[in-house]
């Protein structure tokens, strides 16, 4: 279940797609799963490691990091202030 993209801009191919660098604060996570479920690019998945309260914080799924488009849905929806995005220049990384 993810947010559906319902329309496509006609100048889509002229647009620079931003890259988001995903930052996580593991000790704040409570594993509600919102960031994972609501990512339109399915970048995130449940991690293996547990924090002090026993919750598994999210991690970037294998090979998915470059797909983050910095929409910040995960950052906005996270009730814990545990994840945020820093926008970067895609050319420097990919």
């Amino acid at each position: 279940m993810s947010l559906k993209i319902v329309r496509e801009p006609i100048n889509k191919y002229m647009q620079k797609i931003p890259l988001g660098l995903i930052h996580i604060i593991p000790e704040r996570c409570k594993e509600c799963g919102y960031c994972i479920d609501l990512c339109p690019k399915d970048v995130l998945e449940v991690g293996d490691e547990r924090n002090i309260k026993g919750y598994r914080w999210p991690r970037v799924a294998d090979g998915k990091a470059a797909e983050c488009i910095a929409c910040r849905m995960c950052e906005w929806i996270c009730p814990e202030f545990a994840i945020f995005i820093v926008e970067a220049d895609r050319r420097e990384y990919v």
Binding site: I22, H23, I25, P58, V60, A66, Y93, V94
Partner: peptide, 8 residues
């Protein structure tokens, strides 16, 4: 590229 662990 992967997630970065931070504390704030």
């Amino acid at each position: 590229l992967r997630e970065r662990i931070v504390d704030e």
